[in-house]
Simulated scan of single mutants.
Amino acid sequence: MNDSTAKNATALRILLVEDNPTNQKVALLLLKKLGYDADVVNNGLEALETLRHHFYNVVLMDIQMPEMDGLTATRHIRMEFSPPHSPWIIAMTANAMKGDKEACLNAGMDDYIAKPVRKELLVQALELAIQRCPRSE
């Protein structure tokens, strides 16, 4: 992380949408090591409800979850929140088959990281988000 990224880390509000407790802990630990904090919800329905009450610059979105999967949640977010109130959405998924990245982008996600998440790829995705995501409510 460069100096400008470090300065922006505290200003970046991140929502982690992940149903697996182990994956939540791993992602939160990795984010913390990079200087970021994040709030956590367990599925797409919880993500939508949380976004209705709080602004987040970035959403790290799992794809396969109960209640509402990440692709469906992303489509709802894009319909409900227009720029500049729509967050930058990064898919974080174990789906790494051919066509999965395209499915995520077609659903309205802005970026894609395959699990297990590699630190350098997360850094790149967050640096891109800092450059492009909305800054305030």
Rank of each mutant, 00 (worst) to 15 (best):
M1P: 05
N2M: 06
S4C: 07
T5V: 10
A6D: 09
A6R: 14
A6W: 06
K7L: 12
K7I: 10
N8I: 06
A11N: 11
I14Y: 05
L15K: 00
L16G: 00
E18M: 02
N20T: 04
N20M: 06
T22V: 15
N23D: 05
Q24I: 04
Q24C: 00
Q24T: 00
A27V: 05
L28P: 03
L29V: 09
L30Q: 15
L30T: 15
L31G: 02
L31T: 08
K32A: 10
G35N: 05
Y36F: 15
Y36Q: 07
D37P: 08
D39L: 15
V41I: 04
V41M: 01
N42S: 14
N43W: 00
N43C: 04
N43E: 01
N43A: 01
G44W: 00
G44P: 02
G44Q: 01
E46Q: 14
T50M: 10
T50K: 15
T50V: 06
L51N: 02
R52W: 00
F55I: 08
L60T: 06
L60K: 03
D62C: 08
I63Y: 04
I63L: 12
Q64M: 11
Q64Y: 01
P66H: 01
P66R: 01
E67T: 10
E67K: 10
M68C: 01
M68I: 00
D69I: 00
G70R: 01
T72L: 10
T72F: 00
R75P: 09
I77H: 02
I77C: 06
R78P: 04
M79T: 13
E80C: 07
S82I: 14
H85I: 07
H85A: 09
P87M: 09
P87Y: 08
I89H: 04
I89G: 05
A91K: 04
A91S: 08
A91M: 07
M92D: 03
T93F: 03
A94P: 06
A94N: 05
A96T: 12
M97Y: 11
M97R: 08
K98T: 12
E102P: 07
N106K: 14
N106T: 11
A107L: 06
G108K: 08
G108M: 10
Y112E: 05
Y112G: 03
Y112H: 06
K115E: 04
P116C: 09
P116N: 07
P116W: 10
V117G: 00
V117E: 00
K119W: 10
L121E: 15
L122G: 05
L122F: 08
V123F: 11
Q124V: 14
A125G: 06
L126H: 07
L126P: 01
L128K: 15
I130H: 12
Q131M: 10
Q131E: 14
Q131K: 15
R132L: 15
R132A: 11
C133H: 13
C133D: 08
P134N: 15
P134E: 15
P134C: 14
R135T: 15
E137D: 14
